[in-house]
Amino acid sequence: MTFPPDDVKSPGLWPSGRFRRSGKRQLREEGARSALIAAGSTVIFFGLVVWWILSSEFWPAVQKQFFNPENFAEAWPDVVGDISLGFKSSFPFIDFQGSGFWLNIYMFLIAEVLILIFALILAMIRALRGPAFFPLRALVIVFIDLIRGVPIILLILLLGFGVPALQLPGVPRSELFWGVTTLVISYSAYTAEVYRAGIESVHESQRMSARSLGLTQFKALRYVIVPQAIRNVIPALLNGFVSLQKDVALVFVLGIREAVREAGIYTAATFNYTSYIAATVLFLLVSVPVARFTDWYTERDRRRRQAVGAA
């Protein structure tokens, strides 16, 4: 039997076929209308905000200090920086001779690669079972707890100024080295927890079948658990990228001439803050696309899983 029953004639009780079809069209029209309303209200809202700011009596002063086109043009090249100065290799990092935002990107890339590797090692150690591995596991847990408990900026100051001051033989003294190292240490602790969540999200039976085939704990992790775990935490890892990309700027406290430092130098010389706006623009140019990509990827992944679940 169909619902509503075919033999029901009264248009007052059951919607007729024509009525239902027009209902569909009505839905589509409603969709178009709500998009129109959204666009309209956005334009009006931001129009009002901009008008309110621009017509404020403080605006000319604000513009002069923060949004001055001449200062922007003047500060821009230094804040963007340079990569043409070439590389000088100094183990274990290549010492980068550039400056400004290019230096930020360089530090970010080096740090991110090392973080992804180091954090994975930490998470895998933490996932090993059995009493034999207890000391290693304990070491990793203590490391992660300690590092996560200390503000990054404090670690940067401690390692970036503290260690070179010891003047130990054979230990690198470059601020760049210690700045990047600190970022790697700090972010590895967080990222290891992300991996751990991924490892725990893989069903126990997967580990058991891997072990039943004679794979060692390590091989079971390497070939069976970790590949599935990573797939599960890619969105979280991408969020970590965005966060690190910004936090790289913290090494400016060590005197490294990356974008924020360059902007600060300009401000100190001119008493104008537009250089900071230039730096802000650069960070946004990188962060926002990555954030959008993360959202897009997460959504696509969710849809795929649902499709597989439904099949």
């Binding site: 039976s205 058991m208 079948s209």
Partner: peptide
């Protein structure tokens, strides 16, 4: 474990 095979109730393929 290398000398024996086991198959479980749930299909534990990777």
């Amino acid at each position: 474990r290398q000398k024996m095979g086991i198959v479980f109730q749930a299909f534990n393929l990777f």
